[in-house]
Design a protein around this nucleic acid. Structure first.
Length: 425
DNA sequence: TCTGGGGTCCTAGGACCC
DNA sequence: TCTGGGGTCCTAGGACCC
């Protein structure tokens, strides 16, 4: 039996996580807004049914929301991340190897195949539902791309009851299904490719699968050619069991209210830097550069616009927040222009590499304070983790006025003792 | 009033090397 | 009039993903 892939994902993950703790919302439309309560990033099926669209600014949906009494939540990644960990733990018990692909998706790999894939998929659905309250869809195929496509059918065709298997179908049956699906549903085919492939007369998955490989390769590159092979059932993409270290780490946020003063902007940026540095130390890396980014609100074209970024490079890569802070503040001082209303700011750590092979600066003075500073960073990380990130800060972070809007936040049911759901017995 | 936040990989072209 | 043939590394931009 040949190796088999499965792709399992949670139906409207964020909305479902909120609903698990609000049984009173069963059967009612629920949506989740992006950071800053900006646009809509998740909808349950009831919300889709009343015509709420993905990605639309929240303030444009006021009528629909009132009319259908839609419940709106601010996004709460602490909750979704915790629910995600629970699901992934369960998936790991259901396959020889898994790859956590995103917060709500997981590839499961069966190197020697699987008897009765559909039955196994149904079991997965029941088990996840029972343990977490979340509904999932499961797709099986001979490659990751086929599994993804099968998952799409599992979610959109009620007759599949949430599980679909390409691998057990005959070539003819596969062809029939693929005739019915547009290429926009294929993993790796985005808006641009849909347009360009359309011009070549390729619009169904069947047509893409049977396209001329050399032609695809020369016109679109190696990536799409690989997708074509994967659709044919030739597995080209490997399992990535361990998430590779990040090569760049970005932290940025929009502000609820526009910011003009440099100290406030600096507080936001240093706050983002602290979060990024924590992630950096967590993967035991160092960074050699920091990009600082600030911008005004592009949705207000009448207003004076400024959109800029600048990089600061370190002579020696570091994981010390205070070292990076100095560079970041210097760069920001050069970047900042008074008189603009800033809407968003952020930083990106670049040139990230493992800490072990750290290159010393030949001309730098000997790092006498290094062990102490490493201890300081460790202490900061431990305090943040144990007591909350807001408990320890740098002085440069202390100005307020740049925070996000999160007016519809639900409790952190699963990660805070004082916010546990109340159960009446 | 009000429009998210992260990431990756590939490719083409230029600089530079022998 | 004619003007080599490889290679590597870096960067910017474009495409994609959730």
């Amino acid at each position: 039996m040949s190796a088999l892939w499965a792709l399992a994902d949670v139906n409207s993950m964020y909305a479902s996580c909120e609903q698990v703790f609000r049984p009173d919302l069963q059967g009612r439309p629920v949506i989740v807004a992006s950071n800053n309560d900006g646009s809509i990033i998740a909808r349950n099926k009831e919300a889709k049914a009343v015509g709420i669209k993905m990605g639309v600014p929240l303030h444009q949906c006021g009528d629909l929301i009132r009319q259908h009494r839609v419940t709106v939540f601010s996004s709460q990644y602490t909750l979704y991340g915790d629910m995600s960990n629970r699901i992934m733990t369960l998936f790991a018990e259901m396959a020889p190897a898994i790859e956590v692909y995103s917060i709500d998706e997981c590839f499961l790999y069966y190197p020697s195949g699987l008897n009765q894939a559909v039955t196994h998929g149904a079991f997965m659905r029941d088990h996840i539902k029972q343990c977490t309250g979340l509904g999932i869809g499961v797709g099986f195929g001979l490659s990751k791309t086929q599994a993804k496509l099968a998952n799409h059918l599992a979610k959109t065709r009620p007759e599949t009851e949430g599980v679909f298997d390409f691998s057990s179908l005959s070539h003819l049956e596969q062809t029939e299904w693929m005739e019915q699906i547009g290429i926009e549903e294929v993993w790796g085919v985005g808006r641009r490719y849909v347009e360009r492939l359309g011009l070549m007369g390729i619009s169904t998955v069947r047509q893409l699968r049977d396209a001329n490989l050399e032609q695809i390769k020369t016109k679109f590159g190696a990536v799409l050619a690989r997708t074509v092979l994967e659709l044919r059932g030739i597995s080209c993409l490997p399992l990535e069991a361990a998430a590779p270290d990040k090569q760049q780490i970005m932290c940025s946020r929009s502000f609820a209210k526009e910011v003009t003063a440099l100290p406030v902007l600096r507080s936001a940026i240093i706050h983002h830097l602290c979060r990024a540095m924590q992630k950096l130390r967590q993967q035991e890396s160092v960074a050699a550069g920091v990009v600082v980014m600030i911008r005004t609100n592009p949705f207000k074209p009448g207003q004076a616009q400024y959109h800029a970024s600048m990089t600061g490079m370190l002579p020696v890569p570091s994981d010390d927040t205070l070292v990076l802070q100095a560079y970041t503040e210097q760069v920001l001082n050069r970047l900042y222009r008074a008189g603009y209303a800033y809407k968003k700011a952020g930083i990106m750590l670049v040139d990230v590499r493992p800490k072990q092979i750290e290159q010393q600066d030949l001309f730098a003075p000997p790092p006498t304070s290094a062990p102490k500073r490493a201890g300081l960073m460790l202490a900061m990380d431990q305090i943040s983790r144990r007591f909350g990130a807001e408990k320890i800060k740098l002085a440069s972070e202390l100005y307020h006025g740049w925070e996000m809007r999160r007016e519809r936040l639900s409790p952190r049911y699963t990660t805070r003792w004082d916010e546990l759901p109340k159960v009446s017995l």
